[in-house]
Simulated assay, not measured.
Amino acid sequence: MATQIVMDHTGDSRHFFDQTDQEGLATAERRFRKLTGQGFTATTRTPSGDLRVVRAFDPTADETLFYPRLVGG
């Protein structure tokens, strides 16, 4: 089971999907495109445990973390 974790001002929400299910993959890819289109940054974990920014949906990623654009000033 793969997970997409979406961070926002309320905390986080988790969306689970089966990587072998085409419908689940399509839904996950739509969510990826929607969130990154809204300015969220998407990251996946490297084998060493570090986060790596990704610009395209990776259907093999076990975990994708989305966090909102930081606003400062």
Rank of each mutant, 00 (worst) to 15 (best):
M1K: 05
M1W: 04
A2S: 12
T3S: 12
T3W: 04
T3E: 13
T3F: 04
T3N: 08
T3M: 05
Q4V: 06
Q4S: 05
Q4P: 01
I5A: 07
I5N: 03
V6I: 15
V6R: 14
V6T: 13
V6G: 04
V6N: 07
M7S: 09
M7E: 07
M7Y: 15
D8L: 06
D8F: 12
D8S: 11
H9S: 14
H9Q: 14
H9T: 13
T10M: 12
T10R: 15
T10W: 07
G11I: 13
D12A: 11
D12C: 11
D12T: 07
D12I: 08
S13D: 13
S13C: 10
S13L: 11
S13H: 09
R14V: 11
R14C: 08
R14T: 08
H15V: 12
H15G: 05
H15D: 06
H15P: 03
F16R: 10
F16H: 11
F16M: 11
D18F: 05
Q19S: 08
Q19L: 07
T20M: 14
T20S: 15
Q22T: 06
Q22V: 05
Q22W: 02
Q22H: 08
Q22N: 10
E23G: 13
E23I: 10
G24P: 09
G24Y: 04
L25C: 02
L25H: 00
L25D: 01
A26I: 05
T27N: 07
E29S: 05
E29H: 04
R30H: 09
R33V: 07
R33Y: 02
R33F: 03
K34S: 11
L35T: 02
L35E: 06
L35W: 01
L35R: 09
T36F: 03
G37F: 03
G37D: 03
G37M: 06
Q38S: 10
G39S: 11
F40P: 05
T41Y: 07
T41G: 04
A42H: 00
A42K: 00
A42G: 01
T43G: 02
T43Q: 08
T43E: 14
T44H: 01
T44D: 01
T44V: 15
T46W: 07
T46C: 09
P47M: 03
P47Y: 02
P47Q: 09
S48W: 05
S48E: 14
L51K: 08
L51G: 08
L51Q: 10
R52E: 12
R52H: 06
V53C: 03
V53R: 13
R55C: 00
A56V: 03
F57H: 00
T60S: 12
T60N: 12
T60R: 11
A61E: 00
D62G: 15
D62L: 08
E63W: 02
E63M: 09
E63L: 10
T64M: 07
T64Q: 01
T64W: 00
L65D: 12
L65G: 02
F66V: 01
F66I: 01
Y67A: 10
Y67T: 08
Y67N: 03
P68K: 10
P68L: 09
P68H: 10
P68R: 09
P68W: 12
L70T: 09
L70W: 12
V71I: 14
V71K: 06
G72N: 13
G73N: 10
G73Y: 06
G73A: 14
